Amino acid sequence: MKVFVYGTLRKHEKNHDKLKAARVLAEQAWVYGELFDTGLGYPVMRKSNEKKVYGELYEIDDEILKELDWLEGYEPENEDHLYERMEVEVYTDFNRTRAITYVENRAIAKEAISSGDWKLHQLMKSKPNKLYYFAYGSCMDVERFQKANVDHFFQAVVGACRLDGYSMKYLFSVADGGRADIIEDGGVVEGILYEVPLEAVEYLFEREGFYTGWYRATFVDVTVDEQEYNDVLTFHVYDKKAEQAPPAHYAEEILRGSKGRVSEAYYNKLVAELKRLGCEFVG
Rank of each mutant, 00 (worst) to 15 (best):
L255N: 12
P246M: 10
D231Y: 00
V220D: 05
A251E: 01
E226K: 13
W214H: 11
P246N: 10
K240T: 02
Q227R: 14
Y238Q: 01
V220S: 08
V224E: 05
V237Y: 02
E243F: 08
S263A: 08
L274F: 05
R256D: 13
V232W: 05
N268Q: 15
L233A: 07
W214E: 13
A245N: 10
T234G: 04
F235E: 03
G213R: 03
N268A: 07
Y250F: 13
R261I: 15
R256K: 15
A265I: 11
G257D: 03
G257E: 02
N230W: 00
T218R: 02
H249M: 01
Y266D: 07
G213W: 08
E228G: 00
S258M: 13
S258Y: 06
F235L: 06
V262F: 06
K275F: 06
P247S: 12
L274C: 05
R216Q: 11
Y229D: 02
E226A: 12
E226H: 10
P247V: 10
A217K: 03
E228Q: 12
K259E: 14
E252D: 12
L255S: 13
Y267M: 03
L277D: 10
T234S: 07
A265L: 08
V224N: 08
Q227A: 07
V262E: 04
T218S: 07
V232L: 10
H236G: 00
Q227D: 08
R276Q: 15
E228N: 04
E273S: 04
A242F: 04
L277I: 10
A217N: 02
E252I: 10
A265V: 13
E273W: 03
V222I: 03
H236W: 13
E243G: 05
E226N: 14
Y229H: 11
V237M: 02
K241C: 05
E273D: 13
R276K: 15
K240I: 00
D239E: 11
V237E: 04
D225R: 14
E253R: 14
S263W: 06
R216S: 05
V220W: 08
A272W: 02
K240C: 04
R216F: 04
A217S: 09
F210V: 14
E264F: 05
A217H: 00
E253G: 05
T234H: 04
L277G: 10
R256S: 14
Y238W: 06
Q227F: 03
D239H: 11
D239T: 06
E252W: 04
F235Y: 15
K275S: 09
K259S: 09
H249A: 05
W214Q: 10
A248W: 08
W214T: 04
T223S: 15
E252K: 13
D221C: 06
G260V: 12
E243P: 04
T218P: 00
Y250K: 03
V222L: 03
F235G: 03
W214K: 07
R276E: 15
K269V: 00
G260R: 12
P247L: 09
R261H: 12
D221Q: 09
S258L: 07
F235C: 06
E243D: 08
E228P: 00
R216H: 03
A242Y: 06
L274S: 01
